Computed example of a mutant assay.
Amino acid sequence: MDLPEVVRLTGVPMALRWSGAPLPVQPAEDALTITTGPRTDWFVDPATGEVTATGSALLGVAPHREFTLTARVSVDFASAFDAGALVVRPAPDHWAKLAHEISTQRQPMLVSVVTRGRSDDATGLHTDAGTVWLKVSRRAGAYAFHASTDGDVWHLIRHFYLGEQDCEVGFLTQSPTGEGCRARFTQISYLNAVVHDLHDAAHPAPLEYVVERDLAAPRDQVWQAWTDPAAFASWFGGDVGTVGLDVRPGGRWQAGTGLSGRYLDVVDGRRLVMETAFPGGDTVMEMTFSDHEGGTRVRVGQRCRSTEERDGGRQGTEVLLEACGDFVTGQEGR
């Protein structure tokens, strides 16, 4: 099985990298399966300070100060404390995990661990479910862990503070006492906002749209239309003097005097994640480019915070893809 050092998921705007040795992983759209080896864990004993850092987590730097990461988690439990977890880590000695874990009595449970130099360890819920939904969110500088056994009714597990700095967020599979463990994370969803009240049991799912368009031009030409300033200005608007495209993760883009933002992820010729700054809140658009029947299939997706944002985003995306298609088709005819 491949052990990729970088993993990208649909709907997650940042690349994920291993903290620790790469593990067998199976990424697929908005799903992820991670298999860890024996005696793997992240924990710092609260009594002795003994550090256990034998586990590997798949993490990415969250590009927003406020965000929500959700996943449906199922674990092939074999030994005590086997688990699949969501993790946040602002610093090497400040981190937290929310785990779907099995106890020494073979009881599935929700466990939260918050580490500030040393770890604590708290059981939140015992469940009869083989699958649970886990959620980590950050708002106003503090973090929250929520869990659900059905994806509809949510329970607040933990509300805590780990500092104001940026953080990494992602996924961990552990097997502290066993010979290994496999956990599957599905229905993975990232949103650059917190859309629920911490104590409200009902968390509305983010709204989203996907638009696909097949363009009659090769992929390198369509990619150039989005990443070359002169080509971009020709169909998007503005002119070369007012269009700036620093096409790299963290790079800025600007079109004319009205629109600007940054690139959250870039895979040359294949993937662009673009954030656009608006007064009411930034939006994130994920684009993929693939070869398709002699041309290029462009797929654009966005997770939204309101029906207005979703409907406006879909309409704007359709206009953009039509304009880009007209431009690259005209280029082909020259």
Rank of each mutant, 00 (worst) to 15 (best):
G11Y: 02
A217G: 07
R297I: 02
T131P: 12
R139Y: 08
H196Y: 07
F145W: 14
V61D: 10
E318D: 08
F289C: 11
L259N: 13
W226T: 02
A225D: 06
H146Q: 08
Q105S: 06
L58Q: 06
Q26A: 14
A323S: 10
T54N: 09
D120A: 13
L69E: 03
D311R: 13
G244C: 03
M285Y: 12
F77T: 02
D93H: 09
G294E: 07
R213V: 02
T33N: 04
A255N: 11
R219Y: 02
S119W: 12
V25W: 06
G238D: 04
Y143W: 07
R118G: 04
E286A: 14
A15N: 05
A31Y: 07
N192K: 10
E168G: 15
R297Y: 05
D291F: 01
V319S: 14
R305K: 09
V114W: 03
P108A: 05
A140M: 12
T35Q: 12
Q302P: 13
W223K: 07
H292T: 09
V132W: 00
D150A: 05
G151L: 08
D239G: 14
G250A: 07
V328N: 06
V222R: 01
D282K: 08
Y190D: 07
L23P: 05
S74A: 15
S74P: 15
E286Y: 13
Q174F: 01
M1I: 04
Q187V: 11
G294R: 06
T257I: 09
G281T: 06
Y190T: 00
P4E: 06
T131Q: 08
R118E: 08
K135Q: 14
Y190Q: 05
T276C: 11
D76A: 10
G269H: 06
G261H: 03
L207T: 04
T257R: 15
A323K: 10
V267R: 13
A85K: 11
R138E: 04
H64F: 15
F145R: 15
L23Y: 06
G316K: 01
L156P: 05
E318S: 07
G316H: 02
P206Q: 00
R314C: 11
C167I: 06
A225Y: 00
H196W: 02
D326E: 08
A99E: 12
Q302I: 12
L23E: 06
C324R: 03
T40I: 14
G55I: 03
V7Y: 00
A216F: 01
Y190E: 11
T296A: 07
S119C: 10
A91E: 10
A91F: 00
L245A: 08
P206L: 01
A255C: 13
L156I: 03
T173K: 02
F67M: 11
E275H: 07
D2V: 12
A225K: 00
T127V: 14
Q187H: 14
P90F: 01
T40Q: 09
L259D: 08
E322N: 10
L23S: 01
A122V: 10
E318R: 02
G330H: 09
A225G: 08
E322W: 00
D268V: 05
I34N: 04
F236M: 12
